[in-house]
């Protein structure tokens, strides 16, 4: 395998990693602050993608589409939080799992009801189409570089938000002691709604950004949701830093595993058998990674408890 190809694959792993981070950040924030496990996070990803596709179809503007994805996912998140989720904070995890599983059913089939069964169209804007030449003669799609950039900017922004701003202080306070900040007069239910909507907006943004290079269809959120779970288990639940590290690890393992493993087995096996074994193992690689991390750190890399 040439160096150029390897670098390109590392970039691909990074790109899928930062998108996973946008999903995982919301999940881990919601768990950290409210103690809630949200299976419906993948549905918010889907809502973002569908909103973007609908607006892009109507207006032709990708910027408007991205804004729509943020707004729609945040609004859907806020509505869900106000009607359903806030009844679940005091419940055990089992109830949270089931109620949010029910939300997936409603969101998925509801979306199909509204938009029909066929995938929707969402394309990258012309300005970002096509490849660019990177130093060293690597040709790489511009849009994917932009995605990496956007993901990193959002990550930095999120760290700043939590470290520097008033709302960030409240979020951190909420993570460590819920009763205390309520006692200090912070409107805790409003804070929860904001955090949930923020997490939803990040998921929606990821959905729209990825939807432009993949397909916008019902059920697109669940595979990403499960990967995001793996990410936050590896990173440590509640830790934004853990989510970032975990997301990059998972993105790189998944991409490089799929490319390198079949080749590795081909060095001592027949090509077709090597492809079969290699692809099978590659599809399991991130779960093996997760099991490995848990053996040594049961609460993940940056987990507290």
């Amino acid at each position: 395998m040439s160096t150029i190809l390897l670098i390109e694959q590392v970039l691909n792993g990074l790109q899928s990693g930062v998108m996973l981070f946008l999903m995982a950040a919301g999940l881990t924030l919601i768990f950290g602050v409210m103690g809630l496990i949200n299976l419906a996070h993948g549905s918010l990803y889907m809502v973002g993608a569908f909103a973007a596709a609908a607006v892009a179809g109507a207006t032709g503007s990708f910027v408007l589409a991205l804004i729509a994805s943020l707004v729609a996912a945040a609004a859907a998140g806020a509505v869900v939080e106000l009607t359903v989720i806030r009844r679940l904070y005091d419940r055990d995890h089992l109830d949270q799992v089931l109620a949010t599983f029910a939300l997936i059913l409603i969101f998925s089939e509801g979306t199909r009801w509204i938009f029909g069964s066929f995938p929707l169209f969402l394309d990258i804007p012309d300005a970002l189409a096509g490849p660019v030449m990177l130093p060293g003669g690597i040709q790489y799609p511009l849009y994917r570089l932009v995605i990496i950039g956007v993901g990193l900017v959002v990550a930095i922004g999120l760290f700043q938000l939590i470290a520097r701003t008033r709302i960030g202080i409240r979020i951190r306070a909420g993570e460590s002691d819920r009763e205390m900040i309520a006692a200090l007069g912070v409107d805790i239910s409003k804070l929860y709604t904001i955090v949930f909507a923020l997490g939803a907006a990040l998921a929606g943004l990821a959905g729209a950004l990825v939807g432009a290079i993949q397909s916008v269809q019902v059920g697109m959120g669940e595979p990403v949701l499960i990967l995001a779970f793996v990410v936050i288990v590896i990173g440590g639940i509640g830790s934004i830093k853990g989510a970032l590290v975990g997301a990059l690890l998972v993105g790189l393992t998944d991409t490089l595993g799929g490319v390198l493993l079949p080749g590795f087995f081909a060095t001592f096996m027949e090509p077709s058998a090597a492809t079969a074994v290699g692809s099978s193992l590659a599809s399991m690689s991130i779960y093996i990674l997760m099991a490995g991390v848990l053996l040594f750190r049961p609460t993940g890399l940056y987990g507290g408890r």
Partner: peptide, 26 residues
């Protein structure tokens, strides 16, 4: 080795691991 929400997610992930294995094992 884990509890609570970790346990939920890990069992989910192990289930998915077997699922993908079953799909790709010819």
């Amino acid at each position: 080795r884990t509890t609570g929400v970790y346990f939920i997610m890990i069992t989910l992930a192990f289930g998915q691991m077997l699922y993908y294995f079953a799909i790709s094992w010819p």
